[in-house]
Computed example of a mutant assay.
Amino acid sequence: MTTLSTSVKRLQAEGQEGTAHAAPLRSIEALRQAGFIGAADRDALEAVAARYAVSVTPAMAALIDPADPADPIARQFIPDAAELTTLPQELADPIGDGAHSPVEGVVHRYPDRALLKLVHACPVYCRFCFRREMVGPGGDALTGDKLDAAFAYLAAQPQIWEVVMTGGDPLILSARRLREVAKRLAAIPHIRIVRWHSRVPVIDPARITAEYARALKVPGKASYVAIHANHPREFTPAARAAIARLADAGHVLLSQSVLLKGVNADVETLSALMRAFVENRVKPYYLHHPDLAPGTSHFRLTLEEGQALVRQLRGNLSGLCQPTYILDIPGGAGKIPVGPSFLNAAATPGVEAQVEDRHGRRHAYPPP
């Protein structure tokens, strides 16, 4: 997967028109030369790279402290030999995209919304990615007859109210291609909401020019951008400026994060992350429990541990900072909220429930 396809090379070049970009680090040798891995680890990590794509953008490389073995940015993007361990419960398609894909590039799991996967490549490859068996620099873009078939499906399903643009990362595409896609979406009357999911505003912020932000607008539709970030250090000045350009262009901004051991699985980091989103006009939306993707067990914590962390956010952070803790049921059954409950059964007649406050104290409701 480490060889770039011709079409993806072209798409990346087009997306960088008018901007000065240093090359991402796309090989174990490049990471070694940058000081992010040692020579002793090279053979094991070459085995990882042979199976899962590698790419670290200059913006993310600049945030990594090579002297810190627990650096949370490195943990997200630098390959780890633990990725070679696949547990029996881990799945190549952990959330069941394939079971809900009526035509190539479309996932239609819920009645009123569908995913459109425009491209199977990303500027960076997260080591915990739930689509890691499907995306990579050898992944092609959805073009020609395949793209026509995807749009024909969307147009023929009047119940589809929202289209979620995903991949890969759709913001790897050029502004010109995004405008072409926006024009085709605008021509489908029953689609009212277009939501773009991307890592780009934080991992490659120079790409988000004012023109690029405008290219994401779909005439006549409400436009949302879900920004994926997992650690408050990702909010560099350049990332904040890129996010501001999206907000100023009229996009409603939402957050996507994954709860990751060694990255953000403590209340201080998680609180700072959610506050960073809100300070940048991004409404916290989903906090994902890690999916059962192959080779990712070293990132996962238990649901009980995740609930305890989310419980600590309630009452200690503004309501604006509260994400929904989500589990994507393996096999394709969909997302469910798995946050902690603050209601407990009441045995007293006339009392509907025992409710728990942020200090852990219980109160009868309604009061006797």
Results as ranks from 00 to 15, higher is better:
7 S>Q: 15
35 G>R: 02
117 K>G: 10
258 V>E: 03
147 L>N: 08
267 V>F: 12
122 C>T: 07
25 L>K: 03
11 L>D: 14
367 P>K: 10
286 Y>E: 12
251 H>E: 12
200 V>M: 09
272 A>C: 14
346 A>Y: 01
64 I>H: 03
330 P>H: 07
351 V>W: 04
242 A>L: 07
151 F>N: 09
333 A>K: 15
260 L>K: 03
161 W>R: 14
79 P>T: 01
307 Q>D: 05
3 T>E: 15
150 A>C: 13
330 P>V: 05
200 V>N: 09
89 Q>P: 00
73 I>S: 03
159 Q>E: 15
18 G>K: 13
194 V>H: 09
284 P>M: 13
253 L>T: 13
285 Y>F: 13
256 Q>P: 06
281 R>G: 05
71 D>F: 00
49 A>N: 04
64 I>Y: 01
332 G>D: 05
135 V>C: 06
104 E>I: 04
85 T>V: 00
164 V>L: 15
84 L>Q: 04
323 P>Y: 10
363 H>D: 01
307 Q>A: 06
49 A>Q: 05
79 P>V: 00
51 R>E: 05
309 L>E: 02
306 G>N: 02
21 H>P: 07
122 C>S: 10
124 V>F: 07
273 L>N: 12
180 E>W: 13
323 P>V: 10
106 V>S: 13
329 I>K: 12
263 V>M: 01
337 P>A: 13
289 H>W: 05
190 H>S: 12
180 E>T: 13
214 R>K: 11
47 A>G: 07
4 L>R: 12
25 L>Y: 09
88 P>A: 01
99 A>L: 11
3 T>V: 15
151 F>A: 08
68 D>A: 05
307 Q>P: 06
181 V>W: 13
128 F>R: 00
10 R>P: 08
5 S>F: 06
288 H>V: 03
103 V>E: 10
143 T>D: 10
286 Y>P: 05
285 Y>K: 10
357 D>T: 01
133 E>L: 01
92 A>C: 03
217 K>T: 09
159 Q>D: 14
131 R>G: 02
314 R>S: 00
9 K>H: 11
100 H>K: 10
155 A>D: 10
76 Q>M: 00
81 A>C: 02
367 P>E: 06
366 P>R: 04
337 P>C: 09
